[in-house]
């Protein structure tokens, strides 16, 4: 089972695995080929290769969902949230590990326990809180939400990692006259790079793909509509118009697929590390 030699049985296994991989990929293939067909052609035969490539599907959808705007909104929300999650959660984890106290232990326990709370159990009251703070429909409102929801897992991951960073390094810097902030940002933070990558990847995938939170917190503000929300609205308006709907889908999944394919080793490792420690 664990053999490292290539035997005839390995070859058969390889064929089977490749066939299964093709089955895994087939939905992408069908969506892609049909996204450049006319509606009639899709309805007549969804499996055929497009007879004439119809790029207009894309230009129509591009304008209809205002793709550049939705893309920019998603990007902006994701990047801002991830930057502050990394910053605040690493600082908090550092404090919890290096200054152990009953209070800090309690905070850590609270963060960990909160991981089990499903989003649906908070969402209705959360919208209320966000409205009270007059943050509904604001960019900073949704970023604030991601910061709150992102803290537990991120603090937990940093916590586990910082425990392995030798304290002697910090002591040496302190002797040299650095204050605690200098020690953290100049000495400790750069050492956290591996776990920072994990935290960035886990949060990016989650925030970029998130649907319900933007719907609830952004509400009617069209200027902030994210990509998944824009596509959902579009689907609601164009049910059964598969030519346009599929082009919209391809446009929506392309950015995240490119992100994955270009960073796949980091992503697979990051996700694995995140869940094994989580």
């Amino acid at each position: 089972m664990n053999s490292s030699r290539y035997r005839p049985s390995t070859f058969i296994l390889e064929i089977a695995a490749v066939l299964l991989a093709l089955v895994f990929l087939s939905p992408f293939y069908l969506v892609l080929t049909n996204s450049v067909k006319g509606l009639k052609e899709i309805l007549v035969d969804a499996a055929s290769f497009p007879k004439a490539v119809q790029w207009e599907n894309y230009s129509k959808v591009w304008a209809a969902i205002d793709f550049p705007q939705a893309f920019w909104n998603s990007l902006q929300i994701t990047i801002l949230s991830v930057i502050f999650i990394v910053l605040f959660s690493s600082m908090a984890a550092y404090q919890i590990v290096r200054k152990p106290s009953r209070f800090n232990a309690f905070v850590f326990m609270l963060l960990i326990s909160a991981m089990i709370i499903p989003f649906q159990s908070l969402m209705l009251q959360l919208v209320r809180v966000i409205s009270m703070l007059e943050l509904r429909g604001e960019l900073y409102g949704i970023v604030a939400c991601y910061l709150g929801f992102g803290m537990p897992l991120s603090v937990f991951l940093f916590h586990g990692f910082i425990k392995t960073v030798p304290y002697e390094l910090e002591e040496a810097a302190r002797v040299d006259g650095s204050n605690p902030y200098g020690v953290f940002f100049r000495i400790v933070f750069p050492l956290l790079l591996p776990i920072i990558v994990t935290v960035i990847i886990l949060n990016t995938l989650w925030i970029w793909n998130d649907y319900l939170l933007p719907v609830l917190v952004i509400g009617g503000n069209k200027d902030l509509t994210t990509l998944p929300v824009a596509v959902t609205k579009f689907f609601g308006q164009y049910t059964k118009k598969w030519d346009l709907a599929l082009a919209g889908l391809v446009m929506a999944i392309t950015p995240i697929l490119l992100f994955f394919l270009s960073l796949q080793n980091y992503i697979v490792e990051g996700v694995t590390a995140g869940s094994i420690k989580g």
């Binding site: 502050f84 605040f88 959660s89 600082m91 908090a92 550092y94 404090q95 604030a144 803290m151 537990p152």
Partner: peptide, 13 residues
């Protein structure tokens, strides 16, 4: 160090 994390966590969760 702990303030920002706690503010967001307490308000949002």
């Amino acid at each position: 160090f702990l303030g920002p994390c706690l503010i967001f966590f307490l308000t949002i969760v």
